[in-house]
Design a protein around this nucleic acid. Sequence first.
DNA 1: ATACTATGAATGAAAG
DNA 2: CTTTCATTCATAGTAT
Lengths: 221, 221
Amino acid sequence: MVSNGTSKHQEQLLVQMEVQNQHGLSVKVMTDEQMELLRKQISVYATICEHLVEMHKAYSAQQDIVGMRVGNIYPDPLMGSGPRIPSRQRWTPKPMQLQFLESVYDRCHGTPSKQKIKEITAELLQHGQITETNVYNWFQNRRARSKRKQSILAPNHGESEVEKELDESIKEKTTKPEDAEYHENSMLIAEHMFFQSPEIGIEQLMGNVEVPESVSPFGLL
Amino acid sequence: MVSNGTSKHQEQLLVQMEVQNQHGLSVKVMTDEQMELLRKQISVYATICEHLVEMHKAYSAQQDIVGMRVGNIYPDPLMGSGPRIPSRQRWTPKPMQLQFLESVYDRCHGTPSKQKIKEITAELLQHGQITETNVYNWFQNRRARSKRKQSILAPNHGESEVEKELDESIKEKTTKPEDAEYHENSMLIAEHMFFQSPEIGIEQLMGNVEVPESVSPFGLL
DNA sequence: ATACTATGAATGAAAG
DNA sequence: CTTTCATTCATAGTAT
């Protein structure tokens, strides 16, 4: 199905290249990585919304209270034909779990202790089957691949606009900041938010939740 | 080619660039501003999902309130006709590159080491765009598939395990991802869902969404 | 266009 | 931790 990666620090790490279009206008071009990140984020929501709508429709066959434009969501060329049914043997993180893991990773770059693994696992169990080993592996892989990516990216910056927040890589050391603590599920995630839309209530939801169309993801792409 | 050095710090360019998809060709150009808007949009989706869950729960609880008909509020706006997210372009080895890779592979089957990757990449760059990752993946795949071929060719003496697995994987590729081999009585809704067990529903989809008023479980984005 | 196939890429898990 | 394996996903190319 979809995977997701959301990571504030990752975003910071990402390098936007400055290029020129045919008109000589200088713009930022998303790197593949950035695109991938966005793709994933959007896919997650697209999937969730899609399914929710499906369910909702089924439940309220004659009733439709949602005026939102769910269709605006990407039908998704990315995901091929919808989410795959996870009938495989190996663990596949649910979007929610991934979000959580990413958020934890963002805050503690160091090796998560055994204790934390347990906690994280416990938390994630609310979102689906998962074991400590899964979590452990995930962090292992996450770190390893993050590192590899950097080493490939690093030796290639000459003229592109570089705003590397490389303190990130420094933070990637093996120590684990203790001050970074998660307390509650929601708390954790909330802290990690880029944007919160507390103003949006159900009324607006049903009325006019306007998705900024200038950015209709894709109007632009 | 340039040794990694200092990175130029540049001010952020917030250029609103108009991208035309004249030939249906998607261009992934995006300003930071647009990126921000996108994130906001995603956040909005999060909220929408959240409330959808609430509504869903409400429906599940009391379905007898169904009475009002709203008609066709589901325009299904641009399901399938909307702009597409540019798909990730994947590297396609040039014949010359392929030849080279094959020759290397023939020489040393079990040595895709890190250092050699660099050399090979450098070599192949003369024939076209290529990255170390590409090379790495190529060897990875080459070995894996070579191995797989053997295992399906050699060991078909009595054990049909392999064959069976193969058939399944092939079958899985056809048409829709429909693993409807569970209960013949799968719910209508479940058709496109992850889960087909009756006791599993929306909660699993989104995780145990408590829908706290203050915090979005989706807040991550 | 639609379906199939080959294969590049992503990633969980395991070996070293 | 680093490297490798195994499986799966996605897409470019090709055939129907």
